[in-house]
Amino acid sequence: MSHTARAPCILRPQDRAFPLNVMINVAANVLPESRELAATTREHLDDLVTYATHLVFDAHDAVDFVTAGIYHASRYPPARLRVDGRAALYRAVTRACRQGQRYPPRPHGPVRLFRRGSQGSRIEVDAAAASKMNTVKRALQMLSFDRRAALLLRDLAGLDYREMARVLECSPDSTARLVAAARREFGSIYREIAI
């Protein structure tokens, strides 16, 4: 796996002789270092895995999706890591969960019928308590993906509407509507099945 740190922009002497032909990679000076992204990821890793676990209802799948999301975020890191780092991570993880992207990717097609054992992630997490099914998770299971994601992002991960808008790829107003609708539907379902 290649290191994602960008090399600093250095204008070589031969480039200075032809300034019009030089293309300065501005992003190289703006993009964060991999160490900073790793620190941000470590800071929010528990919350990310918790969010993904309750989003897809399986801890092992959640780890795969979180890994895929972090890998995507490392390939396309946000410019303002301290400001948008958390939202970028949640956005990548949400997209990975929605699209079923795993890392390392699993084989597709008939090849998967001949694979041996599980090729899942070797990362161990402590998800014993989160794996237990209860009424709250049953009610969450009945929500749509977007509403479930909105509910978890707001009430479990603690993101504000601006960050949620970046994660869910919609406007803050739509985020507010989504959260309100998700709470209402969740409450109706919970009261229905919890007697």
Binding site: I70, Y103, E124
Partner: peptide
């Protein structure tokens, strides 16, 4: 809802995996 915790070795393995 219950939380999931990732130990340090798991976090290190994850960050190493993604590079």
């Amino acid at each position: 809802l219950s939380r999931v915790t990732v130990p340090d070795d798991g976090a290190h393995a994850l960050l190493t995996t993604v590079g």
